[in-house]
């Protein structure tokens, strides 16, 4: 594998890791506050559908993004209602949200556009175009650094940079602000937070809201930047890979970046089976690459490679009277 091919593979790694990263950070906020969320997949899916639909009808991708975020937050609100207000089972609520999204997106897309549950293809201003970072063209001829800057770092859509920016932002919010401290506390020991006179319910709703925003951006990225339009089930398990990455990262933001890049790299490799065969001499089954993120997660969960300990109050509704 020569240098330029490596850059190409890494380039598609960044592209494919972006939705994983956004969804993973979304899950991080929610689960750090003690709300398990296996509905990341569904929230990304509705956001992908509504952002593509609104971007197509309005011609503005930014309006599309807003619509995506709003639809994702609506489902977040439902998850919050079920798991915070009515103290329902968070896992069952997540399952319901995934199915609701899978069904509603096709139903709405079919009813609006009549193209078999997809949106029309997006052109021009209805898509996020790649942006070229300053000096990318002039640095390109420089050996080594040139291709890294102009091919790998430059030329992505704005949402990729937003996602990368979210990593330090998440770290800062969680570990350097009062809100972050309380958020983490509410996921470990809500009773203590309540005793301190801070609203557990308010904090948890805030976390679920942030989760909805990030999932919304992730979904919008899928249908308006990575691809040009929504197709049925286009998230294709990405929400679950993000969940896997979250466990892999043990609920920490910088590790989440690393885990998502790793899983993005596996996805990028699965697109180029010829490369792996050239590299190690034997053909590797694509199915193995598809299954690898899940297998790795199970190994991590099993505690054979370090122990993944979730937030202690995760999954349990908080009952004040107790």
């Amino acid at each position: 594998m020569d240098f330029l091919t490596l850059i190409q593979v890494l380039d598609s790694t960044v592209r494919l890791a972006t939705p994983l990263l956004l969804a993973c950070l979304a899950g991080l906020f929610s689960e750090r506050a003690g709300i398990f969320d296996i509905g990341l997949e569904g929230k990304m899916l509705v956001a992908a559908m509504f952002s593509a639909a609104i971007a197509y009808t309005s011609g503005s991708v930014w309006l599309g993004l807003l619509a995506g975020i709003a639809s994702s937050m609506l489902l977040s609100g439902l998850h919050g209602l079920a798991s915070i207000t009515f103290r329902g089972n968070q896992l069952i609520s997540g399952v319901a949200i995934n199915f609701l999204a899978a069904g509603m997106t096709v139903l709405v897309a079919q009813s609006w556009f009549g193209q078999g549950g997809r949106t029309p293809s997006l052109f021009g201003g209805a898509r996020f175009e790649p942006i070229t970072l300053p000096f990318a063209d002039s640095i390109e001829p420089v050996p080594f650094i040139g291709p890294i800057y102009s091919e790998l770092l430059s030329g992505h859509s704005i949402l990729v940079y937003v996602a990368l920016f979210c990593v330090p932002a998440t770290w800062w919010i969680l570990y350097r602000t009062r809100f972050g401290l309380r958020l983490r506390a509410v996921g470990e020991n809500p009773a203590a937070v309540d005793t301190a006179g801070i609203s557990v319910i308010g904090l948890r709703y805030a976390a679920v809201c942030i989760c909805g925003v990030l999932c919304g951006i992730a979904g919008a990225y899928l249908s308006t930047a990575l691809q040009a339009g929504f197709v049925k089930d286009m998230t294709a398990g990405r929400g679950f890979i993000a969940l896997a990455a979250l466990i892999f990262a043990k609920w920490r933001p910088w590790y989440a970046l690393a885990a998502c890049m790793l899983f993005g790299f596996l996805q990028a490799l699965a697109l180029r089976p010829d490369l792996i065969e050239g590299l190690i001499g034997i053909p590797v089954q694509v199915q193995l690459l598809d299954a690898l993120p899940y297998v790795l997660t199970v190994v991590i969960l099993a505690g054979f490679v370090g122990k993944a300990i979730p937030p202690r109050a995760g999954g349990e509704p908080y009952v004040k009277e107790r």
């Binding site: 319901a96 899978a102 069904g103």
Partner: peptide, 18 residues
């Protein structure tokens, strides 16, 4: 996909929003 929606609503109301 209407059945998927109905299925989701059944899970939601009989499970999560019990």
């Amino acid at each position: 996909e209407l059945i998927v929606v109905i299925q989701a609503l059944v899970i939601l109301f009989t499970g999560a929003l019990d």
